[in-house]
């Protein structure tokens, strides 16, 4: 079949016409299970966007979850939410940074999020160090799951994947904070040792 452009010398978009479709609705209905079942927006569960929802809630404001200790919250909230997660409470130096991020900066400020990201890195360093005082220190071989490469083969190669192009520098990028941290620690130790000497 000639394309619209081959027939007319110009693509249909430069006229009022919409480009023709390769298949009719009847052909699509025959080929694809359920084609058009939700054609009417009224059949779509999220149309309209807002509805009067029946949710099963038998409260107006949920009764508050008991607090056990400090619970950080976004300063954009007017109060602590009635229910909250208790998975990993603030602790250590990372906890200090996180507490500051929550108390000092609203979610509208980049500083809030960048401090939280920085605290995440501090948290990891703290836990790596702490793990060496346990019977189960962090193990980069088992924890990175790198053995999956052996089990499942290097099936990513030879397929032109764009992620291959930067994989050579990924270890550098991912390892740079650790190297920088180690250098800073070595520098600090040397300086303390010199002063002591």
């Amino acid at each position: 079949m000639d394309t619209p452009m081959e027939r007319t010398g110009h693509p249909p978009v430069y006229t009022h016409r919409k480009p023709p479709l390769p298949e009719t609705p009847e052909q699509l209905r025959a080929r694809i299970p359920g084609w058009g079942a939700d054609l009417d927006p009224a059949d779509r569960p999220s149309y309209p966007r807002e509805i009067a929802a029946e949710t099963g809630a038998h409260w107006d404001l949920p009764e508050p979850q008991p607090e056990h200790g400090e619970r950080e919250r976004s300063m954009e909230h007017g109060m602590l939410t009635p229910v909250f997660g208790t998975a990993q409470p603030l602790q250590g130096l990372s906890g200090v940074v996180r507490r500051y991020a929550y108390r000092r900066h609203s979610e509208g400020k980049a500083a809030h999020w960048l401090l939280l990201l920085a605290a995440d890195r501090v948290d990891v360093a703290e836990h790596v160090l702490r793990s060496f005082a346990t019977l189960r220190p962090d193990n980069p071989i088992t924890e990175t799951g790198i053995r999956a490469e052996v089990k499942h083969g290097s099936s990513r190669f030879g397929k032109g994947r764009s992620d291959i192009r930067h994989q050579a520098i990924d270890p550098v990028v991912n390892g740079a904070p650790w190297v920088a941290g180690a250098l800073a620690a070595a520098w600090a130790v040397r300086r303390v040792a010199r002063r002591a000497g």
Binding site: L61, R71, S74, E76, H77, T81, V83, G85, E107
Partner: peptide, 9 residues
């Protein structure tokens, strides 16, 4: 709005 103390976003 009642379940995430850490963020309103």
């Amino acid at each position: 709005h009642n379940v995430n103390a850490n963020a309103t976003a």
